[in-house]
């Protein structure tokens, strides 16, 4: 297993320096992030954990380029994205980020295939051959026989697989999953997490935001936040969540 914060070849994929985010709600000022530093290398699989109010959602929004920090810097793939405008950020999200959400966020009236194709609609470049690419992504998540089904004809696990296919379609730099198993039963959770691990083994960098140690135990590294700062940043074996490792090993990694 790779060491935490160990940079893969060249510059780290994600480099966050003194990241701060201040929200003003009425007269109240909320410090969601207070000077957070974080480095994630290529092909890492990292869990971000923390209780509610710890700033993990805010951090995820920052990492996903959905929001801009009040201060600090965020280098994604060597590019400073913390000062980009809404249009540029949209393009970065399109090309570099693949989102997986707790509630799947599929378009209900579109088929699995159309849902997977969605990022290509907003792509600036190669949108040709979209069907083949979308089919390949669906095949990768094991849904080649559910291509023309609509979300309401799919089970929860299948829906999340469609969402994952959509996320990996553009071969993003980061696969960013926000409580990806929050709406799934334990059997399906195991399936989805195995899928994540398989994707990781194929070279995908994955960041999972979760509050469950069992989920975090599938990652190599656990970053715990509290009050907008990094509380701990440890390899899984040294983290509390590591206690589930044996269990997973017993369950076997199947995909």
């Amino acid at each position: 297993m790779a060491e935490p914060a160990a940079a893969a070849a060249g510059a780290p994929l994600i480099e966050v320096r003194a990241l701060a985010k201040i929200y003003r709600v009425g007269v109240e000022t909320i410090h969601a992030l207070r000077g957070l530093d974080l480095t994630i290398g290529r092909n890492e699989m990292v869990a971000i954990m923390g209780s509610s109010g710890s700033g993990k959602s805010t951090l995820m929004n920052m990492l996903g380029c959905l929001d801009r920090p009040t201060s600090g810097a965020y280098f994604l793939n060597g590019r400073d994205v913390s000062r980009m405008g809404a249009r540029e950020l949209a393009l970065v999200r399109n090309e570099e980020i693949g989102f997986v959400f707790q509630s799947f966020e599929l378009l209900p009236r579109q088929t699995a295939l159309e849902n997977v194709e969605l990022p290509l609609v907003y792509a600036t470049g190669a949108w040709r051959g979209r069907r083949a690419r979308a089919l390949a992504a669906l095949e990768r998540v094991g849904l080649q026989d559910r291509v023309h089904h609509r979300p309401n004809q799919l089970s929860g696990g299948q829906r999340q697989r469609v969402a994952i296919a959509r996320a990996i379609l553009n071969k993003p730099a980061i696969l960013l999953a926000d409580e990806p198993t929050g709406n799934l039963d334990s059997a399906t959770t195991a399936e989805i997490l195995s899928l994540f691990r398989a994707l990781h083994q194929e070279g995908q960098t994955i960041v999972i935001v979760t509050h469950e140690d069992e989920v975090a135990a599938h990652c190599q590294r656990v970053v715990r936040l509290r009050d907008g700062r990094v509380l701990s940043d440890l390899p899984i074996a040294q983290d509390v969540a590591g206690r589930f490792l044996a269990q997973h090993a017993a369950g076997g990694a199947s995909c």
Binding site: A86, R87, A90, L91, R93, F99, E105, L107, Y122, R166
Partner: peptide, 16 residues
């Protein structure tokens, strides 16, 4: 609204 949010997340620009 959620659909708009999703479209933006997968890279829809405000103009789109």
């Amino acid at each position: 609204t959620r659909e708009i949010g999703l479209r933006k997340a997968v890279g829809a620009t405000p103009l789109a």
